[in-house]
Write a protein that binds this DNA or RNA. Structure first.
Length: 571
RNA sequence: CGGGGCGUAGCGCAGCCCGGUAGCGCACCGCGUUCGGGACGCGGGUGUCGGAGGUUCAAAUCCUCUCGCCCCGACCA
């Protein structure tokens, strides 16, 4: 491939729209261009990266016994109504009508479509297990698309669906996918971690997310520093405290706290600490309002609250509602004397004595409040986010916190979809059984973006070798005959031995070529200039650390053939 | 969805308050010099000033509507 003939519109300046490293660099390196919010065109170099990742995924999926098929991007509403997701999925589901005014949607995922196929075609236990996958464009009408390929509305995803005759088989299928995912992300050259996860909109019984570790990640994970436990904070369990305070209860007092609304303001004014304050957060649910109590320095975990209450929608109460329920503006809510509201509390605060709570009255807080005497809680439960320093729920040490980018997610679905859509088969006794399912996704574009978040410097991208758009970026520094001749012959011989080369044959100044090569981020650069040739050498340079090896032109091919160009499939 | 902001040349932006000739840098085209880390000189403007309506002798600029995009918020009690 010659740079002079390829569409690689590199940008000298940073585009205004881009925030994150991967978004900025993919735009600048001429790999993607935006078409609409969260919708991108993949230019030749960007597409090559996508294809490399897809190829690794295909090889590993096939090796794990899955088979590729391709489902349509548009699917009819009837299928979604069968599982109830036509209503439940909400606005993320992009809906439209055809000319006959029939309802359709763009597939955000394909459980319904695949389950429909399998229920029609699979009759017998002899046909199971089955694992089908596709690599295809998905559409989710995200509230707020951002960060380029990281959170687009239209994106390429590998999704796989397994069907087994029983739970045990399903667990085996799940484990195979888990193992395949470990191989896939390892081969992509990423630093990642599988973590226990919440099942979200997809539903099901259990799941793991594959997180690429990066500061810019949108997800927070916790993990046992020296142990094996790792989980998304959404999911991470927090153990009840071991010890209860032994302080003697003091009499309850009501104190003025003018203008102090936040935990910081209140604790500063009362000369205490957030650890001795119980904050009361009012939520509205479709059923009734709820007050959730957690320690002043903790964060409520919405998912845990939803699970406890058995509701799917949970919103922080607005100003008006708070006023109605507590009789005070936001900032002074407390459990004492709160009526018409269910009281639930995180089990951590049960251990407190003589704590601070809001007074349900403007500019007022209670101090030295105590359970039972002053407040009765309806339910105690694990309701907060895990944080650094908490003991691991598996007993294997202390938790630490990190940021991650979710590039893959595996779910044990159980029979949620197969039951709703009656995907059944006959077992050896002729009895009708419901297939047990699993589903497994990988964000292809997001994996590419995550690779950049993990591998870049001030000059540009530093692709991991297995997913780099090309192996070698060949820079012919001048238009002189000797440079062109050597470049041309090296290019040909490298290509013929299966090495991917991007040949910068443009009539540009050396500096432009160096900068573009560093920006695009091929792992190796082969630099051919008159200066070097005068001494009979060309330069072989590593993008990662700038290490230069000088070689005679006729040694280049041999040298290149020793490079680890692909972490081979045969491992 | 709520709050804030921005749409002016391919890209990054100024001009808008205070109405009157559409501008700067980069990119681009031509010629010449230069040529191993984003060169220089000379010449060239490539624009529905996001769109529609209104006010006005006159609108990028003021008003109304509309579309698109970006950022923040989903822990604040």
């Amino acid at each position: 491939m010659r740079v002079s003939q390829l569409l690689i519109p590199t940008l000298r300046e940073d585009p205004g729209e881009a925030e994150t490293v991967s978004h900025r660099l993919m735009l600048r390196a001429g790999m993607i261009r935006k078409v609409a919010a969260g919708i991108y065109t993949y230019l030749p170099l960007g597409l090559r990266v996508i294809r490399k990742i897809e190829r690794i995924i295909r090889e590993e999926m096939d090796r794990a016994g899955a088979q590729e098929l391709l489902m349509p991007i548009a699917s009819p509403a009837e299928l979604w109504r069968e599982t109830g997701r036509w209503d439940f999925y909400g606005k993320e589901l992009l809906r439209f009508q055809d000319r006959h005014e029939r309802d359709f949607c763009l597939g955000p995922t394909h459980e319904e479509v695949i389950t429909d196929l399998i229920r029609r075609e699979v009759r017998s236990y002899r046909q199971l297990p089955l694992n089908c996958y596709q690599i295809q464009t998905k559409f989710r009408d995200e509230i707020r698309p951002r960060f380029g390929l990281m959170r687009g509305r239209e994106f390429i995803m590998k999704d796989a669906y397994s069907f087994d005759k029983d739970e045990e088989g399903a667990r085996l299928s799940y484990q195979k996918m888990y193992d395949a995912y470990v191989r896939i992300f390892t081969r992509c050259g990423l630093t990642f971690r599988p973590v226990e996860a919440d099942t979200g909109l997809i539903g099901g019984t259990s799941s793991h997310e594959f997180m690429v570790l990066a500061e810019t990640g949108e997800e927070t994970i916790v993990y046992a520093e020296h142990g094996t436990y790792a989980a998304n904070v959404e999911r991470a369990e927090v153990l009840p405290p071991k010890e209860t305070s032994t302080e003697a209860p003091r009499p309850l007092r009501k104190l003025p706290t003018p203008g102090a609304r936040t935990v910081e303001e209140v604790t500063a004014m009362l000369k205490t600490t957030p650890q001795r304050l119980v904050k009361t957060l009012l939520y509205t649910t479709p059923k009734e309002p709820v007050a959730v109590l957690v320690r002043g320095d903790r964060a409520v975990n919405d998912i845990k609250v939803k699970t406890l209450l058995g509701v799917t929608d949970l919103q922080l109460a607005d100003q008006e509602t708070v006023m109605t329920l507590t009789g005070a503006p936001i900032g002074f809510a407390g459990p004492i004397g709160l009526k018409r509201v269910r009281l639930v509390a995180d089990h951590e605060v049960k251990a407190l004595r003589n704590f601070v709570v809001g007074g349900n009255e403007a500019d007022t807080h209670y101090v030295d409040a105590n359970w039972d005497r002053d407040v009765t809680i309806e339910r105690w439960a694990d309701l907060r986010n895990a944080s650094a320093g908490d003991p691991s729920p598996r007993g294997d040490g202390t938790l630490r916190v990190a940021r991650g980018i979710e590039v893959g997610h595996v779910f044990m679905l159980g029979t949620k979809y197969s039951k709703a859509m009656r995907a059944t088969f006959l077992d050896p006794e002729g009895k009708e059984c419901v297939a047990v399912m699993g589903c497994y996704g990988i964000g292809v574009g997001r994996t590419a973006a995550a690779a950049i978040e993990q591998n870049y410097d001030a000059k540009g991208i530093i692709w991991p070798v297995p997913i780099a758009p090309v192996h070698i970026h060949l820079l012919a520094l001048s238009q002189s005959a000797q440079v062109s001749d050597i470049a041309s012959s090296l290019y040909t011989s490298l290509i013929q031995s299966g090495i991917e080369v991007l040949w910068d044959d443009r009539d540009e100044r050396a500096g432009v070529k160096f900068n573009d090569a560093d920006l695009i981020g091929a792992p190796y650069q082969l630099i051919i200039g008159d200066k070097g040739l005068a001494q009979g050498t060309v330069e072989f340079k590593l993008r990662k650390d700038g290490t230069v090896t000088r070689l005679a032109p006729d040694q280049v091919l041999k040298h290149a053939q020793t490079l680890p160009l692909d972490s081979s499939r045969a491992r």
